[in-house]
Amino acid sequence: MHNRPNRCYILTGASRGLGLGIARAIAAQGDHLIALARQETPELAQLGAALPGYRFVAVDLANIDQVSEIAEELLGSLAAMDWQGIYLINNAGVVEPIGPAGSYGDAEMARCLTVNLTAAIQFSNAFLRHLRDRACDKRILQISSGAGRNAYTGWSAYCASKAGLDMYSRCVGLEQDGLPHPVRIASLAPGIIDTGMQASIRATPEGDFPLLEQFRQYHANGELADPNSRGRAIVQLLHTDHIGHGAVLNIRDFI
């Protein structure tokens, strides 16, 4: 065990769904895991109890001030430690509000953009700032969506937030390319996965989401990926050269 690489992962949305699958893949490697979510689920707590380098941080990603405070404290303290590799995975996301633009309220829209985009940028910016001069392996992976690259009726806020995440990653990639100690960054569409988000989509009124039946068929036909196997595939991809200077990726190209 003493020869294991000293690596740390910071993972948002770690308590359930794909985030929990990614957390399990990290735990299987025996690496340090900083898990962020609003609440620590029993499944995540059980995983952490068996992982010496585990820490849970409660955070509401819709609260900009709270995210800023936690990102500064967390990345500041981690940057002072000696890592062979440090990795930020911005996985947390919400799909609501679902419905035609003009039908949802400003508060719903703001929460979607804040959780999916603003919080991810806040954590990424803190990561870039605090680790700028560190020579270790440094990578940021944004969990995006095909909805950031394709327009879907009823998903205007969600699509806009994920498109913003893709473009942020592309810009940061350009900025980091050629620096003495660059941070690798990429934005990844993880495919359709059997998570609570998919269940929420299937419960949407048909009038708000014309593609509802298509998403119900994904579930009925067994086309949704298992969160644990997809989490393993994502962690494996994170350590390849495909995570470079702002690439916008789709997991289907690698599995």
Rank of each mutant, 00 (worst) to 15 (best):
R7D: 05
N228M: 08
G191L: 09
C112Y: 06
A107S: 14
R149L: 08
R170W: 04
G85T: 00
G93V: 03
L224G: 03
S200H: 11
A233P: 02
C112N: 15
S77F: 00
P182T: 08
E175I: 01
I121Q: 09
L249A: 02
L174E: 12
A247Q: 15
I185F: 04
I143H: 01
D106A: 14
A62P: 02
V57K: 01
I140W: 00
Y152M: 09
N221Y: 11
I89Q: 00
S15F: 10
S169A: 13
L249G: 01
Y87L: 00
L174C: 09
G30N: 08
L249S: 04
C112A: 07
L11R: 04
N6M: 12
Q217Y: 06
I243W: 06
I193K: 12
I70A: 03
P210S: 13
R7I: 08
S144H: 08
A27N: 06
E40Q: 14
A225H: 13
A45I: 08
M167E: 11
Y168V: 01
V172R: 11
C112W: 03
L224F: 05
Q214E: 13
S15L: 11
S156K: 03
N228L: 13
G13L: 05
A157T: 09
M1Y: 09
A220R: 13
A199D: 15
L51N: 06
L141H: 01
R129L: 03
M1W: 10
P210T: 14
N228K: 10
G178M: 06
D65V: 11
V95S: 13
T153W: 15
